[in-house]
């Protein structure tokens, strides 16, 4: 089972199979407990929405948990003015970085599951470890390396870095995914005398769409949410939205309405992805959410 996380093909949590009849009381209790937890989970979301629509004066003490007495979008406007340039930069970062990691991961996953070479296991294990390392352990030299290579602070450098550090997880997801491709198909290709490139592009790639959806969603979310690389390799002027949000929220003049509106704005893209493509998102979790 430990392997389900690392190895299982990306798919949704399987549906429940046994529906044992239970007493209405037991069911009522179960729903009650579930609802209590639901409220706890949603509490911070409530605070975010409510506070973001208040004037700053209302965000403290007595009225803290109440609905706004005076509804205002000034927090949202201020947050949008501060954050909007960085949001576009976040898209410009997360989209290409996830695509490149996914393409490389797909090729690697194919080779490691279907076109293995001696010691492929060792290579795979070394890739996997790269997924778990605390990135702090490479941060100082990484900053020096980007300097030596002449890569300036900002989005372009972050694209390269996220592409590279996304390779392990993407490789893992695709390797597990391709392991489920019927061997017959591959054999047919071999008998056919097809080379690796044809086998990959003509047999594997057409089957890969679900794998790509899962990896792209996963990579997009983690690149979008990244703060550590961003803070070492970019600034509020040329970095992604997490940096700008931290500056807005951790700034010296803490304005909770704007900070909370900002938190909602910055979370919106990943939440939309989660709501629209949640099925695959969970697939990604199950397949290899072995990622910090």
């Amino acid at each position: 089972m430990a392997t389900t996380t690392l190895v299982a093909a990306p798919e949704q949590v399987p549906p429940a199979r046994t529906r044992r009849p239970s007493s209405p009381v037991a069911r009522g209790v179960r729903y009650g407990v579930l609802l209590v937890f639901l409220v706890m989970i949603l509490l911070p979301a409530y605070v975010l929405f409510v506070t973001s629509l208040k004037p700053p004066a209302e965000t403290s003490s007595a009225q803290a948990w109440l609905l706004p007495q005076e509804w205002t979008t000034s927090g949202w406007r201020q947050a949008w003015d501060t954050l909007s340039p960085s949001l576009w930069r976040s898209f410009a970062l997360a989209i290409p970085a996830s695509i490149m990691s996914a393409v490389l991961g797909s090729m690697n996953g194919f080779v490691l599951s279907r076109w293995r070479f001696p010691r492929a296991n060792v290579v795979f294990a070394l890739f996997l470890f790269g997924m778990f390392i605390p990135y702090q352990a490479i941060m100082l030299p990484l900053v020096e390396l980007t300097g030596t290579l002449g890569l300036p602070n900002g989005i372009a450098t972050l694209i390269v870095v996220h592409t590279v550090f996304g390779i392990p997880i993407c490789t893992l997801i695709f390797r597990n995914y391709y392991a489920s491709v019927p061997e017959d198909l591959m054999e047919a290709a071999r008998v056919d005398g097809a080379g690796i490139w044809r086998a990959y592009t003509q047999i594997i790639l057409p089957l890969s769409a679900p794998g790509f959806v899962v990896t792209l969603i996963w990579q997009f979310t983690s690149v979008w949410n990244d703060f550590l690389f961003a803070i070492f390799l970019s600034t509020t002027q040329n970095g992604p939205a997490t940096i700008a949000l931290q500056a807005l929220a951790g700034g010296q003049l803490s304005n909770y309405s704007a900070s909370m509106a900002g938190a909602l704005i910055v979370s919106a893209p990943t939440l939309v992805v989660y709501i629209v493509l949640g099925r695959y998102f969970i697939g990604g979790l199950m397949a290899g959410s072995v990622k910090g």
Binding site: L43, D226, F227, Q246, M260, A263, L271
Partner: peptide, 24 residues
């Protein structure tokens, strides 16, 4: 529904959720 709701915080960055938790 419950499963999705319980999972949604996972899609949010620590930086964003930190804003509200700092207040809470």
């Amino acid at each position: 529904f419950f499963r999705s709701m319980y999972l949604f915080p996972m899609a949010v960055s620590f930086i964003a959720s930190g804003v509200v938790w700092r207040w809470l």
